[in-house]
C-alpha cells in the first residue's frame, strides 16, 4: 500500500511533506518540555483561520499591495523616463551613467534609515523604498533595450522620413519593448521584496511585513509562519502571472524564431 502511495504522490511533494511531518512530531515532542518556539501545525492553521475571520490578513495584504502598486507606479515612470533619456542620448548617458551605476550598488536596505529620516517613519518612507527598488532595474533595462535597437532599423525610419515622434513610436519603442518588459518584470519582483522589507524594518502601520514582525513580539510565532506563507504564495503567484502576461504580450517575439 505504501508503495502504491509512493507512486501516486509526485516526487516534488515528498520533501515538504516530510518536513511538515517532522515539524508536527517535533512540536508535539517539544510541547512537554516547555519550548514555546516550535508551534504545531494545527495552531498555525487556527491562527490563519483567525486572521482571516477577523479580517487582519486581508487588511495587511491590502496595505502591502497598495505600497507595491504605488511604489511600482512611481518607480517605473521615473525609471522609464530616465532610461529613455540615457538610452537615447549619448550625452545624457556619459553625464549620468557613472553616477547611476555607482548609486545602484547601494543595497536598498542601507537606504532604509535615510528614507525614514527624510520621509518620516511611515507609509511614505516605505513607498519611497519601493520606488527606489523599482527604479534601477526599469531604468537599466529601458536604456539597454533602446541602445540595442539595431542601427539598420533606425536608418530605415530615417530613410522613410519619419518624424521624431514616429521614429519613437514605430521603431525605438517596439524594438526595445521586450527588454523594457524584462525591466518591469524585475521591478515588480523587487517591489514586492522591498515592500515586505520596508514594512519589517520601518515598523509603522499595517502590512504583511508588520504582521510577521508582530508574530515575534505581541502575537504568537504561528502568526509569523502564516505571514511568511502568504508572502511566499503571493510572490509565487505574482511571478506566474507576470510570466503568463509576458508570454501573451510578446507572442510576436517568438515568430521570427
Amino acid at each position: 500500500m505504501i508503495a502504491a502511495l509512493y507512486k501516486k504522490v509526485p516526487a516534488g511533494l515528498w520533501p515538504p511533506l516530510l518536513v511538515l511531518l517532522a515539524w508536527e512530531i517535533g512540536a508535539h515532542l517539544a510541547a512537554g518540555r516547555g519550548s514555546a518556539f516550535v508551534v504545531p501545525l494545527e495552531k498555525v492553521a487556527a491562527a490563519a483561520a483567525d486572521l482571516l475571520v477577523q479580517g487582519v490578513l486581508q487588511v495587511d495584504l491590502g496595505w502591502t499591495l497598495w505600497r507595491v502598486a504605488s511604489g511600482f507606479a512611481l518607480g517605473a515612470c521615473a525609471g522609464l523616463a530616465f532610461g529613455a533619456l540615457t538610452g537615447a542620448s549619448g550625452l545624457a548617458e556619459r553625464l549620468a551613467g557613472p553616477l547611476f551605476h555607482a548609486l545602484r550598488q547601494i543595497p536598498f536596505t542601507g537606504l532604509v534609515p535615510l528614507c525614514a529620516l527624510f520621509l518620516g517613519v511611515g507609509s511614505s518612507a516605505q513607498i519611497g523604498l519601493v520606488t527606489i527598488a523599482v527604479f534601477y532595474p526599469v531604468a537599466l533595462n529601458t536604456a539597454e533595450g533602446l541602445r540595442a535597437v539595431p542601427g539598420s532599423y533606425r536608418e530605415l525610419g530615417r530613410s522613410l522620413n519619419f518624424s521624431r515622434f514616429q521614429q519613437w513610436r514605430r521603431i525605438m519603442l517596439p524594438g526595445a519593448l521586450p527588454q523594457i518588459f524584462t525591466g518591469l518584470k524585475h521591478g515588480l519582483a523587487f517591489a514586492w521584496i522591498a515592500a515586505v522589507a520596508a514594512e519589517l524594518l520601518i515598523t509603522a502601520g499595517p502590512g504583511l511585513g508588520a504582521l510577521i514582525e508582530s508574530g515575534t513580539t505581541i502575537r504568537g510565532f504561528e502568526v509569523s509562519v502564516v505571514g511568511i506563507a502568504v508572502i511566499g504564495a503571493c510572490g509565487y503567484g505574482m511571478s506566474l502571472a507576470v510570466a503568463g502576461l509576458e508570454a501573451r504580450l510578446l507572442r510576436w517575439r517568438g515568430m521570427k524564431g
Binding site: 520533501p15 515586505v196 522589507a197 511585513g209 509569523s224 511566499g232 509565487y236
Partner: peptide, 19 residues
C-alpha cells in the same frame, strides 16, 4: 524531489525569513 520546493521557496523574499 527537491526542485519544486526550491522554486517555491526562492519566491519568498529572503528578508521575510527574519522572524
Amino acid at each position: 524531489a527537491f526542485l519544486p520546493s526550491f522554486h517555491v521557496l526562492r519566491q519568498v523574499p529572503v528578508i521575510a525569513w527574519l522572524p
